[in-house]
């Protein structure tokens, strides 16, 4: 399939879905239009609502808050994950002691932590950041741990023979290896940072995309919910694209990255 054909098919899928929605909510084909509108709203109304979000400028504040929470959660979670991952990989005894606790903490569904974080950090952004951190930390931690453990023994022996000391090995061998593993999980971890932020907002906040959606739900404003979801999806796509760009720059030594092998 060529690029043009692919794009045409993708647009066709959107047209069929939105067109079907439009017909069902405007013409009595599948039943009472009023009932359908109550539960599903209409594409026109949703589009209008989104336009209003941006025209009045009310959405920017919420987008900014969510972005801020996502980035903070990612940076703090990834930083802690790299540090602890490195520490555990270089100190097998520490890793062995903490192993069951790490597994236990990771097995815990993070949503149950949300009320506690709200109690600890309040209703502002930090309770959402904390929730995102608990999600991001484990992904990055496991990847970095693996990355440091699975450094090729030959590359390591060669680096030693080149006269590298422990500090130089860390800088030239362990660190790049761990980073490459971290970046392989970048999409997942940024996605989880966002999930943490939105779920946190949803459960209790005064701003952010999760709050916008939750507020609309509270008044049975289905149009508002759908509009919020569309904006959220677009936001995720843009953030993900940004991640892809960063990845391409930093990971160009990797087979398959940057040159489409």
């Amino acid at each position: 399939m060529s690029r043009g054909q692919l794009l045409a098919w993708r647009i066709a899928v959107a047209v069929v879905l939105i067109g079907g929605w439009h017909i069902a909510s405007n013409y009595p084909v599948f039943g009472d239009v009023k009932t359908i509108r109550f539960f599903f709203s209409t594409p026109g109304d949703v589009a209008l609502k989104i336009w209003k979000f941006f025209a009045t400028g009310m959405i920017w504040k919420h987008l900014w808050i969510t972005l801020e929470e996502t980035l903070l959660a990612f940076v703090i979670g990834a930083g802690a994950g790299v540090a602890v991952g490195f520490w555990f990989a270089r100190q097998p005894r520490v890793a062995a002691v903490f192993d069951p606790y790490v597994k236990m903490a990771n097995a815990l569904p993070r949503v149950v932590l949300a009320p506690i974080f709200m109690l600890w950090f309040g209703l502002g952004i930090w309770s959402k950041v904390a929730l995102g951190v608990t999600l991001v930390f484990f992904i990055v931690f496991f990847n970095v741990y693996q990355g440091v453990k699975e450094v090729s023994p030959v590359v390591l022996a060669n680096a030693r023979m080149l006269g590298m000391n422990e500090r130089q090995l860390l800088r030239h061998v362990y660190w790049p290896s761990a980073l490459s593993w971290m970046f392989s999980s970048l999409h997942t971890s940024v996605g989880f940072a966002l999930v943490g932020a939105v779920v946190g907002e949803y459960l209790g906040a005064a701003s952010g995309l999760g709050y916008v959606i939750h507020e609309a739900e509270g008044t049975f404003d289905v149009t508002g919910v759908f509009a919020g979801m569309v904006v959220l999806s677009a936001f995720v796509l843009i953030v993900d694209h940004g991640v892809t760009l960063i990845e391409g720059r930093l990971m160009k030594w990797r087979p398959g990255a940057g040159e489409g092998r």
């Binding site: 090729s152 060669n158 030693r160 790049p176 030594w253």
Partner: peptide
């Protein structure tokens, strides 16, 4: 410990893949 005055050429690939 590692013999600093020896150079070692390995059978397998030993280059650091993240460096040019």
């Amino acid at each position: 410990g590692v013999a600093a005055s020896a150079g070692y050429l390995f059978q397998q690939d030993a280059l650091m893949p993240w460096k040019t």
